[in-house]
Amino acid sequence: MDGGIEMEQTVRKVLIGNYQDLPESLGKAVEVDDKELAVFRLSNGNVKVIENKCPHRGGKLSEGMVSGEHVFCPLHDWKINLTDGLVQAPDEGCVKTYKTSIEDNQVYVEIPER
């Protein structure tokens, strides 16, 4: 811990596209700066964004199978929670998650700035 000092975090809102353009129950890879994000439009309508890199061996999670609030990595089937980014047991690890918002049908993702 850094001695309890709260660092101020600035975030940048990045437009990633039209809500309708996101395929339903599937993921889509979106590049923002040097990051690759995986954007999912779930069957319940929510949009989730996580880092597009499986902590196991780097599989592109955007190509995984989506089930409820989880995605299964396309390479070796790790199961990852789209909300908190946690890998489900018996595997371990986590991916970064990003906040999203939808305004006027436009989907934005919040990218923290250093």
């Binding site: 990045v14 437009l15 596209g17 353009d21 395929p23 599937l26 889509k28 979106v30 590049e31 923002v32």
Partner: peptide, 11 residues
């Protein structure tokens, strides 16, 4: 083509 193969870059 768009849903599955397109490459998307956002700024």
């Amino acid at each position: 083509l768009k849903d599955l193969y397109e490459k998307v870059t956002a700024k």
